[in-house]
Amino acid sequence: MAEERPAKWGLVVDLDRCTGCNACIAACSMENNVPFVGEDEVAYGRALYWIRTQRYWEGEYPAVTPTFQPVMCQQCGNAPCEPVCPVYASVHSEEEQINLAVYNRCVGTRYCANNCPYFARVFNWFDYELPEPMRSYLNPDVTVRRRGVMEKCTFCVQRIVRGRQKARAEGRELRDGEIQPACVQACPAEALVFGDLSDPESRVSQLARSQRRYHLLEELGTLPRVTYLKGVGNHGG
């Protein structure tokens, strides 16, 4: 069996390709048991999306163009949410090198959410019950969260763990592109690419070296693991 080397998972978002279709949001919510909060609460600003599409308008009416930018947890290498949590509910995983939310440890101070410059964290304001037939779609690999708990994108850590276990059982190394978070899998325009940044030959590493690359608010020194590729076309972000 090959020696497993620690991976450094990363995501590339090509803004030239993003069409703003929101398929990533739907896929993420289904994969991660993200509850639906209802129209009124969404309108009030309490939607529990782990990934959202920021839509900006460019130009003056009527010559306006929308630009889309999917934003999820940037899995910062130096995450502002981690030191402020009093109970270690926001921690860095050594194995996946990502930032994890420990739901059953969270006491709900919401400090991490204030301190996240990307506002990637969402809070369970109430207990959100699913009506009966819909409960059967819940993903058994992901815990459901109760009221008073923070949650956020985990790069679908359950898929990373399962992919690694599968490769280990078959006695081989992980193939590039074998592990895909739900949003990447669902993106019809292939605007999202996921993979191991520590492997210079992986597709994600090659894309992350593109001349169009930038990181969100990188001047803050958070060392995000998500790389954006600047859009140069009409509909890029």
């Binding site: 969270c106 006491v107 709900g108 101070t109 919401r110 109760r146 009221r147 008073g148 708990v149």
Partner: peptide
């Protein structure tokens, strides 16, 4: 202000 005051 705690979300889960019962585990304060």
């Amino acid at each position: 202000h705690l979300g889960r005051v019962w585990v304060f």
